[in-house]
Write a protein that binds this DNA or RNA. Structure first.
Lengths: 228, 228
DNA sequence: CAGTGGTCTAGACCACTCC
DNA sequence: GAGTGGTCTAGACCACTGT
Protein backbone atom coordinates (compact mmCIF):
# COMPACT_ATOMS: atom_id res chain seq x y z
CA UNK A 1 0.00 0.00 0.00
CA UNK A 2 1.06 3.53 -0.57
CA UNK A 3 2.35 5.64 2.27
CA UNK A 4 -0.68 7.89 2.36
CA UNK A 5 -3.86 6.01 3.22
CA UNK A 6 -7.24 7.50 3.88
CA UNK A 7 -6.59 7.00 7.58
CA UNK A 8 -3.51 9.17 7.22
CA UNK A 9 -5.61 11.92 5.75
CA UNK A 10 -8.28 11.33 8.37
CA UNK A 11 -5.96 11.79 11.32
CA UNK A 12 -4.15 14.70 9.73
CA UNK A 13 -7.45 16.47 9.20
CA UNK A 14 -8.46 15.64 12.77
CA UNK A 15 -5.21 17.14 13.99
CA UNK A 16 -5.83 20.35 12.11
CA UNK A 17 -9.32 20.60 13.53
CA UNK A 18 -8.15 19.97 17.08
CA UNK A 19 -5.22 22.33 16.92
CA UNK A 20 -7.49 24.94 15.37
CA UNK A 21 -5.21 25.14 12.41
CA UNK A 22 -8.61 24.87 10.75
CA UNK A 23 -10.77 27.29 12.70
CA UNK A 24 -14.37 26.55 13.64
CA UNK A 25 -16.60 28.09 11.01
CA UNK A 26 -13.82 28.38 8.50
CA UNK A 27 -13.65 26.72 5.14
CA UNK A 28 -10.93 24.18 4.58
CA UNK A 29 -9.04 23.58 1.31
CA UNK A 30 -10.95 21.65 -1.30
CA UNK A 31 -10.32 18.00 -2.03
CA UNK A 32 -8.08 18.58 -5.01
CA UNK A 33 -5.80 20.93 -3.08
CA UNK A 34 -5.54 18.59 -0.13
CA UNK A 35 -4.82 15.67 -2.39
CA UNK A 36 -2.00 17.59 -4.01
CA UNK A 37 -0.65 18.78 -0.69
CA UNK A 38 -0.73 15.38 0.98
CA UNK A 39 0.35 13.50 -2.10
CA UNK A 40 -2.53 11.17 -2.71
CA UNK A 41 -5.52 10.80 -5.00
CA UNK A 42 -8.63 12.91 -4.53
CA UNK A 43 -10.68 9.80 -3.82
CA UNK A 44 -8.50 9.13 -0.81
CA UNK A 45 -9.10 12.61 0.56
CA UNK A 46 -12.79 12.18 -0.19
CA UNK A 47 -12.99 8.99 1.81
CA UNK A 48 -11.33 10.60 4.83
CA UNK A 49 -13.36 13.78 4.81
CA UNK A 50 -16.61 11.93 4.22
CA UNK A 51 -15.85 9.87 7.28
CA UNK A 52 -15.26 12.97 9.38
CA UNK A 53 -18.43 14.54 8.08
CA UNK A 54 -20.44 11.46 9.06
CA UNK A 55 -19.05 11.79 12.57
CA UNK A 56 -20.19 15.41 12.67
CA UNK A 57 -16.70 16.90 12.68
CA UNK A 58 -17.00 18.52 9.28
CA UNK A 59 -19.82 19.94 7.21
CA UNK A 60 -19.69 19.39 3.50
CA UNK A 61 -21.80 20.96 0.80
CA UNK A 62 -21.29 20.98 -2.91
CA UNK A 63 -20.02 24.23 -4.22
CA UNK A 64 -19.97 25.67 -0.69
CA UNK A 65 -17.02 23.49 0.23
CA UNK A 66 -16.11 21.87 3.51
CA UNK A 67 -16.26 23.69 6.82
CA UNK A 68 -15.49 23.04 10.46
CA UNK A 69 -18.83 23.39 12.23
CA UNK A 70 -19.11 26.03 14.95
CA UNK A 71 -21.07 23.73 17.22
CA UNK A 72 -20.00 20.23 16.40
CA UNK A 73 -22.89 17.87 17.06
CA UNK A 74 -21.22 14.77 18.29
CA UNK A 75 -22.82 11.42 17.80
CA UNK A 76 -22.84 8.33 19.94
CA UNK A 77 -23.62 4.97 18.43
CA UNK A 78 -25.26 2.37 20.58
CA UNK A 79 -25.48 -1.25 19.75
CA UNK A 80 -28.88 -2.76 20.36
CA UNK A 81 -28.12 -6.36 21.15
CA UNK A 82 -30.68 -8.95 21.97
CA UNK A 83 -31.14 -9.01 25.71
CA UNK A 84 -29.59 -12.41 26.18
CA UNK A 85 -26.40 -11.29 24.50
CA UNK A 86 -26.42 -8.08 26.51
CA UNK A 87 -26.48 -10.12 29.72
CA UNK A 88 -23.80 -12.48 28.49
CA UNK A 89 -21.53 -9.60 27.50
CA UNK A 90 -21.71 -8.40 31.10
CA UNK A 91 -20.32 -11.75 32.15
CA UNK A 92 -23.59 -12.95 33.65
CA UNK A 93 -25.69 -16.02 33.01
CA UNK A 94 -28.91 -15.17 31.23
CA UNK A 95 -32.25 -16.52 32.31
CA UNK A 96 -35.70 -16.08 30.88
CA UNK A 97 -39.26 -16.57 32.05
CA UNK A 98 -42.36 -16.12 29.95
CA UNK A 99 -44.99 -14.42 32.09
CA UNK A 100 -47.97 -14.17 29.79
CA UNK A 101 -48.97 -14.42 26.18
CA UNK A 102 -52.37 -13.31 24.97
CA UNK A 103 -54.09 -12.19 21.85
CA UNK A 104 -55.70 -8.87 22.62
CA UNK A 105 -56.97 -5.73 20.93
CA UNK A 106 -54.24 -3.26 20.18
CA UNK A 107 -53.83 -0.47 22.70
CA UNK A 108 -54.93 2.88 21.45
CA UNK A 109 -51.51 4.32 20.67
CA UNK A 110 -50.67 1.38 18.44
CA UNK A 111 -54.08 1.07 16.79
CA UNK A 112 -53.21 3.77 14.27
CA UNK A 113 -51.94 2.19 11.10
CA UNK A 114 -53.46 -1.17 11.85
CA UNK A 115 -56.40 -2.71 10.06
CA UNK A 116 -59.71 -2.05 11.84
CA UNK A 117 -60.18 -4.58 14.59
CA UNK A 118 -56.67 -5.90 14.59
CA UNK A 119 -55.62 -8.18 17.37
CA UNK A 120 -52.05 -8.10 18.54
CA UNK A 121 -50.09 -10.67 20.47
CA UNK A 122 -49.21 -9.40 23.90
CA UNK A 123 -46.12 -10.99 25.40
CA UNK A 124 -44.69 -10.28 28.82
CA UNK A 125 -41.46 -11.84 29.92
CA UNK A 126 -38.78 -11.44 32.52
CA UNK A 127 -35.09 -11.62 31.77
CA UNK A 128 -32.75 -12.70 34.52
CA UNK A 129 -29.03 -12.29 35.00
CA UNK A 130 -27.41 -14.79 37.33
CA UNK A 131 -30.92 -15.54 38.53
CA UNK A 132 -31.61 -11.93 39.46
CA UNK A 133 -34.31 -9.93 37.62
CA UNK A 134 -32.63 -7.91 34.92
CA UNK A 135 -35.30 -6.55 32.67
CA UNK A 136 -39.03 -6.75 32.12
CA UNK A 137 -40.07 -7.09 28.48
CA UNK A 138 -43.62 -5.98 27.65
CA UNK A 139 -44.28 -6.39 23.98
CA UNK A 140 -47.00 -6.15 21.37
CA UNK A 141 -46.47 -8.14 18.21
CA UNK A 142 -48.40 -7.81 14.98
CA UNK A 143 -49.14 -11.35 13.71
CA UNK A 144 -49.63 -9.98 10.20
CA UNK A 145 -46.07 -8.70 9.83
CA UNK A 146 -44.59 -11.39 12.05
CA UNK A 147 -46.15 -14.49 10.53
CA UNK A 148 -45.66 -17.60 12.56
CA UNK A 149 -45.45 -15.81 15.85
CA UNK A 150 -48.85 -17.13 16.90
CA UNK A 151 -47.55 -20.67 16.82
CA UNK A 152 -44.01 -19.91 17.92
CA UNK A 153 -42.80 -21.39 21.17
CA UNK A 154 -41.80 -18.41 23.24
CA UNK A 155 -41.12 -20.31 26.43
CA UNK A 156 -37.57 -21.23 25.52
CA UNK A 157 -36.57 -18.35 23.32
CA UNK A 158 -37.55 -14.77 24.05
CA UNK A 159 -39.83 -12.87 21.72
CA UNK A 160 -36.93 -10.48 21.35
CA UNK A 161 -34.75 -13.18 19.91
CA UNK A 162 -37.48 -14.83 17.88
CA UNK A 163 -38.28 -11.57 16.15
CA UNK A 164 -34.65 -10.80 15.38
CA UNK A 165 -34.31 -14.17 13.70
CA UNK A 166 -37.66 -14.33 11.96
CA UNK A 167 -38.53 -10.86 10.81
CA UNK A 168 -36.69 -7.97 9.30
CA UNK A 169 -37.59 -4.37 9.69
CA UNK A 170 -37.04 -1.37 7.54
CA UNK A 171 -37.24 1.26 10.23
CA UNK A 172 -38.47 2.26 13.60
CA UNK A 173 -37.72 4.44 16.54
CA UNK A 174 -36.30 4.09 19.99
CA UNK A 175 -36.64 6.26 23.06
CA UNK A 176 -34.92 6.23 26.43
CA UNK A 177 -36.41 7.52 29.62
CA UNK A 178 -37.00 6.82 33.28
CA UNK A 179 -40.09 5.80 35.24
CA UNK A 180 -40.90 4.99 38.82
CA UNK A 181 -41.61 1.30 39.31
CA UNK A 182 -45.28 0.62 39.82
CA UNK A 183 -46.09 -2.03 42.45
CA UNK A 184 -46.57 -4.87 39.98
CA UNK A 185 -43.36 -4.12 38.11
CA UNK A 186 -41.49 -3.70 41.38
CA UNK A 187 -42.59 -7.15 42.44
CA UNK A 188 -41.39 -8.67 39.20
CA UNK A 189 -38.07 -6.87 39.24
CA UNK A 190 -37.65 -7.53 42.95
CA UNK A 191 -37.16 -3.89 43.82
CA UNK A 192 -38.86 -1.23 45.87
CA UNK A 193 -42.03 0.31 44.48
CA UNK A 194 -41.19 3.72 43.16
CA UNK A 195 -37.60 2.81 42.34
CA UNK A 196 -36.25 4.63 39.30
CA UNK A 197 -36.20 2.30 36.31
CA UNK A 198 -34.36 2.87 33.08
CA UNK A 199 -36.85 2.48 30.24
CA UNK A 200 -36.39 1.71 26.58
CA UNK A 201 -39.39 2.00 24.27
CA UNK A 202 -38.79 0.61 20.84
CA UNK A 203 -41.05 0.28 17.85
CA UNK A 204 -40.07 -1.43 14.64
CA UNK A 205 -41.88 -1.38 11.35
CA UNK A 206 -41.61 -2.89 7.93
CA UNK A 207 -42.54 -0.17 5.53
CA UNK A 208 -45.40 1.55 7.30
CA UNK A 209 -46.71 -1.54 9.02
CA UNK A 210 -46.02 -2.20 12.68
CA UNK A 211 -44.04 -5.32 13.52
CA UNK A 212 -43.60 -4.92 17.22
CA UNK A 213 -43.59 -2.36 19.98
CA UNK A 214 -41.84 -3.09 23.21
CA UNK A 215 -41.11 -1.51 26.54
CA UNK A 216 -38.06 -2.73 28.38
CA UNK A 217 -37.98 -1.83 32.07
CA UNK A 218 -34.57 -2.45 33.56
CA UNK A 219 -33.91 -3.25 37.17
CA UNK A 220 -32.62 -0.32 39.22
CA UNK A 221 -28.98 0.53 38.68
CA UNK A 222 -28.91 -0.52 35.06
CA UNK A 223 -26.66 1.57 32.85
CA UNK A 224 -26.35 1.63 29.10
CA UNK A 225 -22.91 2.61 27.94
CA UNK A 226 -21.13 3.69 24.80
CA UNK A 227 -17.88 5.24 23.73
CA UNK A 228 -17.77 8.51 21.86
CA UNK B 1 -23.93 8.98 -13.73
CA UNK B 2 -24.19 5.37 -14.61
CA UNK B 3 -27.37 3.48 -13.98
CA UNK B 4 -25.94 1.36 -11.20
CA UNK B 5 -24.87 3.43 -8.22
CA UNK B 6 -23.68 2.15 -4.89
CA UNK B 7 -27.14 2.94 -3.52
CA UNK B 8 -28.57 0.60 -6.14
CA UNK B 9 -26.34 -2.17 -4.93
CA UNK B 10 -27.09 -1.25 -1.34
CA UNK B 11 -30.83 -1.55 -1.69
CA UNK B 12 -30.60 -4.66 -3.82
CA UNK B 13 -28.47 -6.32 -1.17
CA UNK B 14 -30.89 -5.15 1.50
CA UNK B 15 -33.74 -6.69 -0.48
CA UNK B 16 -31.97 -10.01 -0.69
CA UNK B 17 -31.30 -9.98 3.02
CA UNK B 18 -34.90 -9.12 3.86
CA UNK B 19 -36.44 -11.62 1.49
CA UNK B 20 -34.03 -14.27 2.78
CA UNK B 21 -32.77 -14.80 -0.70
CA UNK B 22 -29.55 -14.50 1.26
CA UNK B 23 -30.13 -16.65 4.31
CA UNK B 24 -28.95 -15.68 7.78
CA UNK B 25 -25.63 -17.35 8.39
CA UNK B 26 -24.99 -17.96 4.74
CA UNK B 27 -22.19 -16.59 2.68
CA UNK B 28 -23.05 -14.22 -0.12
CA UNK B 29 -21.28 -13.95 -3.47
CA UNK B 30 -17.96 -12.18 -3.40
CA UNK B 31 -17.52 -8.63 -4.62
CA UNK B 32 -16.24 -9.54 -8.04
CA UNK B 33 -19.19 -11.82 -8.76
CA UNK B 34 -21.72 -9.26 -7.59
CA UNK B 35 -20.06 -6.57 -9.64
CA UNK B 36 -20.30 -8.73 -12.74
CA UNK B 37 -23.89 -9.71 -12.00
CA UNK B 38 -25.08 -6.18 -11.31
CA UNK B 39 -23.00 -4.58 -14.00
CA UNK B 40 -20.79 -2.21 -12.07
CA UNK B 41 -17.26 -1.92 -10.80
CA UNK B 42 -16.09 -3.84 -7.80
CA UNK B 43 -15.45 -0.59 -5.92
CA UNK B 44 -19.13 0.21 -6.21
CA UNK B 45 -20.12 -3.10 -4.68
CA UNK B 46 -17.50 -2.59 -2.01
CA UNK B 47 -18.93 0.77 -1.04
CA UNK B 48 -22.43 -0.65 -0.71
CA UNK B 49 -21.48 -3.75 1.25
CA UNK B 50 -19.15 -1.80 3.52
CA UNK B 51 -22.06 0.47 4.34
CA UNK B 52 -24.27 -2.47 5.22
CA UNK B 53 -21.54 -4.01 7.33
CA UNK B 54 -21.15 -0.77 9.28
CA UNK B 55 -24.86 -0.88 10.00
CA UNK B 56 -24.50 -4.42 11.30
CA UNK B 57 -26.45 -6.06 8.49
CA UNK B 58 -23.50 -7.92 7.06
CA UNK B 59 -20.31 -9.38 8.45
CA UNK B 60 -17.22 -9.17 6.32
CA UNK B 61 -13.89 -10.87 6.77
CA UNK B 62 -11.04 -11.20 4.38
CA UNK B 63 -10.78 -14.60 2.87
CA UNK B 64 -13.83 -15.76 4.82
CA UNK B 65 -16.09 -13.64 2.66
CA UNK B 66 -19.27 -11.78 3.50
CA UNK B 67 -22.07 -13.31 5.53
CA UNK B 68 -25.52 -12.39 6.75
CA UNK B 69 -25.24 -12.46 10.54
CA UNK B 70 -27.51 -14.83 12.43
CA UNK B 71 -28.25 -12.25 15.08
CA UNK B 72 -27.92 -8.87 13.47
CA UNK B 73 -26.83 -6.33 16.05
CA UNK B 74 -28.57 -3.18 15.03
CA UNK B 75 -27.14 0.17 15.89
CA UNK B 76 -28.81 3.40 16.86
CA UNK B 77 -26.99 6.68 16.51
CA UNK B 78 -27.83 9.48 18.87
CA UNK B 79 -26.90 13.04 18.37
CA UNK B 80 -25.54 14.71 21.46
CA UNK B 81 -26.52 18.32 21.01
CA UNK B 82 -25.68 21.07 23.45
CA UNK B 83 -28.54 21.41 25.88
CA UNK B 84 -29.67 24.78 24.64
CA UNK B 85 -30.05 23.43 21.11
CA UNK B 86 -31.85 20.38 22.44
CA UNK B 87 -34.40 22.61 24.14
CA UNK B 88 -34.79 24.81 21.09
CA UNK B 89 -35.33 21.80 18.84
CA UNK B 90 -38.25 20.84 21.05
CA UNK B 91 -39.82 24.19 20.26
CA UNK B 92 -39.20 25.59 23.73
CA UNK B 93 -37.40 28.69 24.92
CA UNK B 94 -34.16 27.84 26.67
CA UNK B 95 -33.17 29.40 29.96
CA UNK B 96 -30.09 28.96 32.08
CA UNK B 97 -29.10 29.64 35.68
CA UNK B 98 -25.64 29.16 37.10
CA UNK B 99 -26.04 27.70 40.58
CA UNK B 100 -22.49 27.43 41.80
CA UNK B 101 -18.91 27.48 40.64
CA UNK B 102 -16.08 26.42 42.90
CA UNK B 103 -12.56 25.17 42.70
CA UNK B 104 -12.42 21.96 44.67
CA UNK B 105 -10.44 18.75 44.99
CA UNK B 106 -11.40 16.14 42.44
CA UNK B 107 -13.82 13.50 43.65
CA UNK B 108 -12.25 10.13 44.09
CA UNK B 109 -13.54 8.51 40.93
CA UNK B 110 -12.06 11.29 38.80
CA UNK B 111 -8.80 11.60 40.73
CA UNK B 112 -7.25 8.75 38.78
CA UNK B 113 -5.23 10.08 35.89
CA UNK B 114 -4.95 13.53 37.38
CA UNK B 115 -1.79 15.09 38.74
CA UNK B 116 -1.45 14.61 42.50
CA UNK B 117 -3.40 17.32 44.25
CA UNK B 118 -5.30 18.53 41.24
CA UNK B 119 -8.13 20.93 41.75
CA UNK B 120 -11.09 20.82 39.41
CA UNK B 121 -13.66 23.44 38.69
CA UNK B 122 -17.06 22.35 39.91
CA UNK B 123 -19.95 23.91 38.06
CA UNK B 124 -23.61 23.36 38.80
CA UNK B 125 -26.27 24.87 36.62
CA UNK B 126 -29.93 24.54 35.86
CA UNK B 127 -31.33 24.54 32.34
CA UNK B 128 -34.87 25.73 31.84
CA UNK B 129 -37.35 25.20 29.03
CA UNK B 130 -40.08 27.80 28.81
CA UNK B 131 -39.12 28.74 32.35
CA UNK B 132 -39.63 25.22 33.67
CA UNK B 133 -36.69 23.20 35.03
CA UNK B 134 -35.42 20.97 32.27
CA UNK B 135 -32.12 19.55 33.35
CA UNK B 136 -29.60 19.86 36.14
CA UNK B 137 -25.99 20.00 34.98
CA UNK B 138 -23.37 18.98 37.54
CA UNK B 139 -19.94 19.18 36.06
CA UNK B 140 -16.26 18.87 36.88
CA UNK B 141 -13.86 20.63 34.58
CA UNK B 142 -10.11 20.16 34.45
CA UNK B 143 -8.54 23.64 34.14
CA UNK B 144 -5.39 22.09 32.73
CA UNK B 145 -7.07 20.65 29.64
CA UNK B 146 -9.67 23.42 29.44
CA UNK B 147 -7.42 26.47 29.70
CA UNK B 148 -9.30 29.69 30.19
CA UNK B 149 -12.21 28.09 31.96
CA UNK B 150 -11.18 29.61 35.28
CA UNK B 151 -11.71 33.09 33.92
CA UNK B 152 -14.61 32.25 31.61
CA UNK B 153 -17.93 33.90 32.29
CA UNK B 154 -20.30 31.01 32.79
CA UNK B 155 -23.27 33.08 33.86
CA UNK B 156 -24.45 33.82 30.34
CA UNK B 157 -23.24 30.77 28.49
CA UNK B 158 -23.42 27.28 29.94
CA UNK B 159 -20.28 25.33 30.68
CA UNK B 160 -21.64 22.81 28.20
CA UNK B 161 -21.57 25.34 25.41
CA UNK B 162 -18.31 26.97 26.48
CA UNK B 163 -16.55 23.63 26.41
CA UNK B 164 -17.91 22.68 23.01
CA UNK B 165 -16.60 25.91 21.57
CA UNK B 166 -13.30 26.09 23.42
CA UNK B 167 -11.98 22.59 23.74
CA UNK B 168 -11.82 19.54 21.58
CA UNK B 169 -11.75 16.02 22.79
CA UNK B 170 -10.36 12.84 21.36
CA UNK B 171 -12.59 10.41 23.16
CA UNK B 172 -14.76 9.66 26.10
CA UNK B 173 -17.70 7.67 27.19
CA UNK B 174 -21.34 8.18 27.89
CA UNK B 175 -23.80 6.22 29.96
CA UNK B 176 -27.56 6.42 30.38
CA UNK B 177 -29.44 5.37 33.44
CA UNK B 178 -32.14 6.31 35.91
CA UNK B 179 -32.02 7.55 39.49
CA UNK B 180 -34.56 8.61 42.09
CA UNK B 181 -34.44 12.34 42.73
CA UNK B 182 -32.80 13.18 46.04
CA UNK B 183 -34.48 15.99 47.97
CA UNK B 184 -32.06 18.70 46.86
CA UNK B 185 -32.30 17.72 43.21
CA UNK B 186 -36.08 17.45 43.46
CA UNK B 187 -36.22 21.01 44.76
CA UNK B 188 -34.12 22.27 41.88
CA UNK B 189 -36.06 20.37 39.24
CA UNK B 190 -39.37 21.23 40.87
CA UNK B 191 -40.48 17.64 41.17
CA UNK B 192 -41.34 15.19 43.91
CA UNK B 193 -38.48 13.66 45.88
CA UNK B 194 -37.94 10.12 44.64
CA UNK B 195 -39.23 10.89 41.14
CA UNK B 196 -37.51 8.84 38.45
CA UNK B 197 -34.95 10.96 36.62
CA UNK B 198 -33.30 10.14 33.35
CA UNK B 199 -29.55 10.45 33.85
CA UNK B 200 -26.71 10.97 31.42
CA UNK B 201 -23.16 10.66 32.66
CA UNK B 202 -20.58 11.80 30.19
CA UNK B 203 -16.81 12.01 30.43
CA UNK B 204 -14.63 13.48 27.75
CA UNK B 205 -10.88 13.29 27.45
CA UNK B 206 -8.13 14.57 25.27
CA UNK B 207 -5.72 11.73 24.90
CA UNK B 208 -5.67 10.23 28.37
CA UNK B 209 -6.29 13.49 30.20
CA UNK B 210 -9.69 14.35 31.60
CA UNK B 211 -11.37 17.44 30.20
CA UNK B 212 -14.72 17.26 31.87
CA UNK B 213 -17.10 14.89 33.54
CA UNK B 214 -20.75 15.75 33.81
CA UNK B 215 -23.97 14.35 35.13
CA UNK B 216 -27.16 15.57 33.52
CA UNK B 217 -30.31 14.91 35.54
CA UNK B 218 -33.40 15.50 33.47
CA UNK B 219 -36.75 16.50 34.87
CA UNK B 220 -39.28 13.65 35.10
CA UNK B 221 -40.86 12.65 31.82
CA UNK B 222 -37.84 13.47 29.69
CA UNK B 223 -37.30 11.17 26.74
CA UNK B 224 -34.35 10.86 24.42
CA UNK B 225 -35.34 9.71 20.98
CA UNK B 226 -33.75 8.38 17.85
CA UNK B 227 -34.68 6.67 14.63
CA UNK B 228 -33.24 3.31 13.73
C1' DC C 1 -22.62 29.73 -14.68
C1' DA C 2 -19.00 27.68 -12.48
C1' DG C 3 -16.91 25.57 -8.40
C1' DT C 4 -17.09 21.83 -5.26
C1' DG C 5 -18.26 17.49 -3.56
C1' DG C 6 -20.32 12.79 -5.14
C1' DT C 7 -19.56 8.86 -7.56
C1' DC C 8 -18.06 5.44 -11.20
C1' DT C 9 -14.44 2.88 -13.57
C1' DA C 10 -10.66 -0.32 -14.54
C1' DG C 11 -6.74 -1.93 -12.95
C1' DA C 12 -3.52 -2.77 -9.48
C1' DC C 13 -1.42 -4.23 -5.25
C1' DC C 14 -1.77 -5.27 -0.43
C1' DA C 15 -3.27 -7.52 4.01
C1' DC C 16 -5.49 -10.67 6.33
C1' DT C 17 -6.89 -15.24 7.32
C1' DC C 18 -8.87 -19.72 6.35
C1' DC C 19 -7.39 -24.14 4.76
C1' DG D 1 -0.78 -20.90 -0.41
C1' DA D 2 -4.61 -18.81 -2.20
C1' DG D 3 -8.98 -16.47 -1.95
C1' DT D 4 -11.33 -12.43 -0.35
C1' DG D 5 -11.94 -7.92 1.22
C1' DG D 6 -9.30 -3.24 1.77
C1' DT D 7 -7.48 0.42 -0.47
C1' DC D 8 -5.03 3.46 -3.95
C1' DT D 9 -4.88 5.68 -8.44
C1' DA D 10 -5.94 8.65 -12.39
C1' DG D 11 -9.32 10.20 -14.98
C1' DA D 12 -13.92 11.17 -15.97
C1' DC D 13 -18.54 12.84 -15.63
C1' DC D 14 -22.43 14.19 -12.78
C1' DA D 15 -25.31 16.85 -9.37
C1' DC D 16 -26.03 20.28 -6.49
C1' DT D 17 -25.91 24.99 -5.16
C1' DG D 18 -23.77 29.63 -4.22
C1' DT D 19 -22.99 33.71 -6.74
Amino acid sequence: MNNVTWQTVHSEALRRIRTREWLPGARIPDEADLAAELGCARATVNRALRDLAEAGLLERRRKAGTRVPLNPVRKATFEIPIIRQDIESRGLTPGYRLLSRDLAPAPEDLARGLAGEAQLLSVRALHLADGIPFCLEERWINPVTAPGVLVADLTGISANEWLVQNTSFTGGDIAFGALNADPATARLLDCAPGAALFIIDRTTRTGEALITSVRLSYAPGHRMQAMI
